[in-house]
Amino acid sequence: MDKKKVLIVEDQVLVRKFIENALADSDRYEASFSIKNADLADVYCQKNEIDLILMDVYTDLGASGLEAAARIKKQYPEIKIIVITSLPEFSFIKRAREIGVESFMYKEDEANSLISIMDRTMAGESVYPDKTPEVKIGLASSYDFSERELEVLRELTSGNTNEEIAAKLCISTATVKTHIANLMDKTGFKSRTELAIKARELGLVIL
């Protein structure tokens, strides 16, 4: 049986080597290419027959794996994609589904091995985690926040003012203030700076 050709898009050398090793151990897959920058992923699909892409979300130079996945899915819908990330940002799963990405996994997922998810994906299954990994932020768990609160938090990390956040999310400034107050209340942080920095560092929200 021919080995399935895999394109690995992952900017961290160590993780990439791990994946390469895992693929080398299996008899069903081979790593055709391993690249660091998602912006270049489409190029590899032009000439080479790729069956599966393992796509990191946040790659070299800040290139977005999700954007690349969207472009590739549009041109080559037959190529299967598994998005792999370590960032708990809740919107990633949603966007991946919208784009039509087959499967999604967290790097820290111990229960499911990469190869088993690849097998299931190649068998036509779509494997998505039920929820984002739980992250502790201040006194709160990431599960304590509503979707709207996380959206406000994401905008907050960009350094936008309340007015700018309100305009972007099409809500009133007062509502933004309420959400931020709730976020601070839940986490116990004293300032919005602290809140924004922690959220960004943990990857709870990614702009």
Partner: peptide, 29 residues
């Protein structure tokens, strides 16, 4: 001032995140 701090922080946060991931992987190794 807050927004400026946050913006300049945004530039370095990716690095911090990456370093953290590297550390995790190193632990695994």
């Amino acid at each position: 001032a807050f927004n400026e701090r946050l913006k300049s922080y945004g530039a370095s946060v990716d690095e911090i995140t990456v370093q953290r991931e590297i550390l995790n992987t190193k632990l695994k190794i």
